[in-house]
Simulated scan of single mutants.
Amino acid sequence: MQSPYRVMVVDDSAVIRGFLTRWLKEEDDIEVVASAGNGAIALKEFEKHHPEIVVLDIEMPEMDGMTALPKLIELDRNVKVIMASTLTLRNADISMRALAKGAADYVPKPESTREAGEKEVFHRDLIAKVRALGATRRRKLGEDLPSVGGGAAVVPSLAAQASSAPTIYKGAEIKLRSHNAGLFPKVLAIGSSTGGPQALFSVFEKLKGKLSLPVFITQHMPATFTAILAEHLTKIAGMKCAEAVDGEKIEGGRIYLAPGDWHMTVVKGADGEKISLNQNPPENFCRPAVDPMLRSLVEVYGSRILTVILTGMGQDGKLGCEQLANLGGYVIAQDEETSVVWGMPGAVATAGLSNAVVSLNDIPAAVENALSGRPS
């Protein structure tokens, strides 16, 4: 077995450090090499043990997580930092800023470690993100991945981990669909997960002032975080972005963001298209999920949908893109090199459902071309 992923846990609560460390140590492919009660201690431990992944609390004495974050990245620009915070508006905002400053992802800590359901979700998400980010780092550096249970090394995804059926994306052949330029898209739909906020900020910064159609985004996030994400996108995109509201009418020049814990769909009524929210069971272990959004858009707009699948774990969005591809809609997938985790876009690209697989920097131009009837 190849060496396990090296993790450091940083939290001022000895109780939280304890159960995080215990959970991580239970996995054969993960090793906790250090723990620390604040950022200052974490920096010293980092230089001793050189962890690949750091689970970093936000609020700590002496040196908090936001102060420690850039110092950790300075020590190792390839380190993957997962911010851990409780679900408050303040911490959600700090987490968004941490992502913009180089953190790879975040995990919302359960309000109570006694709640079995909350602990189970947090446990599953933490393990999945450590594995996915560790795999991304090692592949970038050309290092071997640890095997799981004696099997082949894989790129794990949230869905794959839960189903015990991992998917290998590295080196998979990408088959692009041809596209016959015809009717212009009526809407833009975007799906994203791990690394998604940073990718969304990058895309909309370059598209500022260039979009007049309705935009629908499903980003895997809890409720408190989606509210903050909407605020940040409004500032960056120069167009109103808000959590979608059940029953609201669809308008051009607006960004509708799926609220945390709700699937966002679109329905057509007598007086036009409207948002319809539901709390149907999670799909791909996620709520909100991309697939329900895409299915509903296909029912309302047919092939006249431009879809972008950004970085993220798992394969949410693949089935929706399959429906869209069968109708002749246009799909853009983020490439592996610029994805934090090439799960969602990789699933679409390797299934031959995308018309273009491009870098994050090139996605805005690809969107403009597709909207103007000049898809590449």
Rank of each mutant, 00 (worst) to 15 (best):
R131E: 13
P4K: 01
E111N: 15
R254D: 09
I82W: 03
E205Q: 14
Q315V: 05
K268V: 07
R131V: 02
A258C: 06
V367T: 02
E118D: 14
P259C: 12
S147E: 12
L20S: 08
V358L: 14
L360G: 00
A223C: 05
K101T: 08
E59Y: 07
V331T: 14
I53Y: 01
I236R: 12
E251Y: 12
Y5E: 04
G65V: 03
I309L: 07
K206M: 05
M1R: 11
I127S: 04
D362C: 05
V33M: 07
P146W: 04
T226N: 07
T67R: 07
D125C: 09
P364Q: 04
A68G: 01
V267D: 12
V203A: 05
L257W: 03
M239E: 10
V154Y: 10
V348S: 00
P70T: 08
Y330D: 10
P281L: 03
L99S: 10
A244C: 10
V367S: 11
K186V: 05
D29F: 08
L200P: 01
A181M: 12
R304K: 15
D246W: 13
V54T: 02
A370Q: 14
G134C: 06
K140G: 13
R177H: 06
I275C: 03
A152L: 13
H232Y: 14
T307S: 15
A36F: 03
P166R: 02
M66S: 05
A153Y: 05
D246N: 15
A68E: 03
G302T: 11
M60L: 11
T67W: 04
P197H: 12
I332V: 14
M239R: 01
T350E: 03
E368V: 15
G238K: 14
P51V: 07
L87F: 04
L188F: 07
G312M: 01
L89F: 10
H50I: 06
K268C: 09
E368K: 14
L306N: 05
V367M: 15
K186G: 12
S296W: 02
G182H: 13
G171T: 07
E337V: 08
L327Y: 08
I236G: 09
K119H: 11
E59N: 13
R139W: 10
I73C: 07
